[in-house]
Design a protein around this nucleic acid. Sequence first.
DNA 1: CACGGCCATCGAAGTCTGTCGATATACTAC
DNA 2: GTAGTATATCGACAGACTTCGATGGCCGTG
Lengths: 116, 116
Amino acid sequence: MTALPTVRCCAPLAGDTLADGDALELEKLFKALADRHRLKIVNRLLAAGEDAVCVCDFEDLLGLKQPTVSYHLKLLRDAGLVEREKRGSYAYFTLAPGALQRVGELLGAPGAAASR
Amino acid sequence: MTALPTVRCCAPLAGDTLADGDALELEKLFKALADRHRLKIVNRLLAAGEDAVCVCDFEDLLGLKQPTVSYHLKLLRDAGLVEREKRGSYAYFTLAPGALQRVGELLGAPGAAASR
DNA sequence: CACGGCCATCGAAGTCTGTCGATATACTAC
DNA sequence: GTAGTATATCGACAGACTTCGATGGCCGTG
């Protein structure tokens, strides 16, 4: 349910004076990306494309223990950047479609891919 | 030395497997943006365009004391996102040209403004 | 040169983050 | 049902980040 619109987020940074609430949302988004391990996760998911990646794969990639990997994935999920699909006892992760592009556009990269 | 070229930074997030060093540089960049006050600073500098803004202006905008404002400005400067120009006893700040767009492009917003 | 305003840096205090072992939950296989 | 595997969550700890008062350096004015 919820039907949360992934990253509906935020006033574009280049707009008029940033309201406090908008600043908070943007902060949350950038915080999610402001960590070497989470960046590697996103990079891996980008490389994987349609394919989903499971938690155990990230343990090897990052050299972190399983609880820590879950912690990072949770942050990315809360920020709306990745999505989880449970299959059996495994959990597979993919990038939230368009999430990264939307972040890019917030920074002033203009229309960009937004062929729309 | 160093002669760091503002934000020459980093492998694009969408490229091949992110090296540790590249992940660190990206992390530094996003960390600089991952704070509500620094976002407001950037937003204000975007609005100011060519005009430079002095430290005391940010004190009012952010509701923070002067040392704290200097702290945030230093972080943004270290990340290559803003530049400082001293005029008399005042310090004026501007956005580093193109820095934000470059960040946006790292996120996969493709050619975009890169008319080049 | 003495004074006052602007800014950077230092040091301390409080809070937030990242990490992991231990534990709980959910599913598979036998 | 029992055993085993894959994730999520909890609790604790170390380290990093944010904030601010106090201090020091610079510059302009009188």
